[in-house]
Simulated scan of single mutants.
Amino acid sequence: MARIQVVTAITLNGFLPETADTLMSWIRTDKQGFPYWHNRCSAFILPHSILDLLCEKDRKDDSFIYLAEIIEPESVELLRGLFHYNLVDELIVYLLPISAGQGTSILNIFPTQQWQLYKTASFSNGICRLIYRKPRKK
């Protein structure tokens, strides 16, 4: 069965960062930012494609990776749908060392669920990358 990854960037207080922010530019363009995941995925998940995904993902093998990129307010509904159908296998969070006073909060979208921290990385610009995986069923 295919795996589904979500990659996002959030501020310390859980908001989507402003797209014009310097740190967001790094995330969108640096080889350790979103391009790292783009190069490893098999297909992107587009908004309004969750029903297609539900039908297709079981037909793919473990090496097939779907990627959803959540960085704009318009993509939040995609995240909500992926969590609603319990489709997310891996959550990659780029945590920016800033706090936002307003904007789109995504913390209230995350389901009540235990995630396992798989890997971390920190970068010289203060950004931390946290990779969480859904616990395996025993």
Rank of each mutant, 00 (worst) to 15 (best):
G103W: 08
N39T: 07
T29G: 05
R133S: 08
D89F: 05
E77Q: 14
R133M: 10
P97G: 02
L51C: 11
V6W: 08
C128H: 15
E90V: 00
S122N: 12
T29H: 10
P135R: 04
V7P: 01
R136E: 06
S42Q: 02
I127R: 03
K138C: 12
T120K: 11
I127Q: 03
R136C: 05
I4D: 07
I127Y: 04
L51F: 13
F15W: 00
S124D: 14
S122W: 10
N108M: 05
T19L: 15
D30S: 12
T120W: 08
Q114M: 12
H48M: 15
L12C: 00
R129K: 08
H48Y: 14
F83R: 04
I92K: 04
R59N: 03
Q5I: 05
E69M: 06
I127M: 00
T29S: 13
Q113G: 08
Y85L: 09
T11C: 05
I10M: 01
I127V: 04
K60C: 01
P135A: 08
H38S: 10
S105H: 13
I71N: 12
C41P: 08
F44N: 14
P17I: 08
Y36F: 15
I45P: 14
D89L: 06
T120G: 05
L82R: 11
K138G: 11
P135T: 03
Y36T: 11
D58T: 08
G103V: 12
I92S: 09
Y94A: 02
N108C: 03
F83K: 04
K31V: 15
R129S: 06
G14H: 02
K137T: 15
A20R: 15
Q32D: 10
T11S: 13
D62G: 04
I50Y: 14
A68H: 01
V88A: 05
N13D: 06
S63K: 10
S25P: 11
L87G: 05
I127T: 03
Q114Y: 11
V6R: 12
E18A: 04
Y94C: 06
P97N: 06
L51N: 14
I106C: 09
E72A: 00
V93H: 02
D58A: 05
L12H: 00
G103A: 09
M1V: 02
E77F: 11
T120R: 11
H84M: 12
N125F: 13
L82W: 09
S49H: 14
A2F: 01
I127S: 01
K60W: 03
F110M: 01
L82T: 07
S124W: 10
K138T: 10
Y36Q: 14
R59F: 02
L91Y: 13
K60R: 02
T11Q: 06
I71E: 10
T8K: 12
L67V: 08
C128R: 15
D89H: 05
I106G: 13
T22G: 15
L79P: 03
P97Q: 03
A100H: 13
A2T: 03
F110R: 01
E69R: 09
F64K: 01
T104R: 08
I70S: 10
I71G: 10
L67K: 10
T8A: 15
L51R: 15
K119Q: 06
K57F: 06
I92M: 07
Q102H: 12
L67N: 12
Q113H: 09
F123W: 06
